[in-house]
Design a protein around this nucleic acid. Sequence first.
DNA 1: TAGATTGTTAATCGATTAACAATC
DNA 2: TAGATTGTTAATCGATTAACAATC
Lengths: 210, 210
Amino acid sequence: MEEKEISQAVISRLPRYFRYLGELKDEGTERVSSQELSDIMQVTASQIRQDLNNFGGFGQQGYGYNVGYLYEEIGKILGLHKEHNLILVGAGHLGQALVNYMNFERRGFIFRGIFDIDERIQGTKVRGITVRPMREMERFVRENDIDIAVLTIPKGSALEVAEQLVSYGIKGFWNFAHVDLHVPENIQVENVHLSDSLMKLSYNLASHDE
Amino acid sequence: MEEKEISQAVISRLPRYFRYLGELKDEGTERVSSQELSDIMQVTASQIRQDLNNFGGFGQQGYGYNVGYLYEEIGKILGLHKEHNLILVGAGHLGQALVNYMNFERRGFIFRGIFDIDERIQGTKVRGITVRPMREMERFVRENDIDIAVLTIPKGSALEVAEQLVSYGIKGFWNFAHVDLHVPENIQVENVHLSDSLMKLSYNLASHDE
DNA sequence: TAGATTGTTAATCGATTAACAATC
DNA sequence: TAGATTGTTAATCGATTAACAATC
């Protein structure tokens, strides 16, 4: 049962709030007003209050927000209290880098399996996890309750692999392949298109020095 | 001399247009109407026409757009006809993955140097490029006309390193460190916050299965 | 209580979509 | 020429900012 639909613009800002609140928390700060947060984060206090109030009244008039509480609550909104079981599909440089990055695990995103089409690396390990052949993927996904697939494979095979994974029960894709996946609407896709990002930087560099 | 300022929302869509036009071009398609592109890309024809007309009239009434021409023009708008000299700062797994990724070079983004604080990897090579100590960075940046720094270093050191790099003449940052850089407004920053992206996926997964 | 700051409504701004005259 | 489709203006929609009453 869906509450009022929250816009993706708001969702995109939540991790940034979460990060700044985490830093305030680590510094031992107990309370913060929307105005103080506004000064630090360079967004309007009004936007902060609007964004938070999409999810409930976390503050208190005359006081502001309790840092620790708000941090926890945003974490819950983001679903960080739940664990997710991930597989990596495509054990190239980028894929291996993602598996080796410790911070995802700290947030509950745990790589359970790695798959690659290249026979030469099958059987090798990345951070203790064996690289398996693609044909073992279906069984692995079903038996290990995998909900997220991280795609670091060439664009040519991504559509086909994604379709298979949906049929195996995958619920979300973290997609680094440079294509737009076509998946049923109950499946979530988060794209990381690195070359798009670099092109945007290129544009901004070019448009600046005119 | 700045023309009318183009919104970042529009800029963000350009690489996607560029990608689809490249595919059409590879298929040998010569012309495309905004409506056809709309069907393929799942955005409105109106938005496509509006976006393109920010940069000039690339189409022709009654005909549509010439695929090859539009592809070239968007490439120019994105600044892809110019070469950029990059350095990597932080030769961890992610940094090495980026250097090894061939497609950036194809678009004119060329890694010239790699720097890392860790003495154990200094002197080793990544894709033929020697990893150098940080103290050589200033001279290298100045002598090799480096304009983009790719930051794949821990958040703790990112602010300081970025400040130094600005003073050495760096014009743009591709920032993978999980902090917001504070740089002068004539310096461009493009952030890739992977954990933010993953949290967004997490939210969408959680909010879906309610 | 008085002061501070939220939660929320109203106003503004900007981005998207629709419509259509211009024109190839 | 008639048909098609752009370029562009106008209308709509949504997101951001401002304002302020509620309230701790």
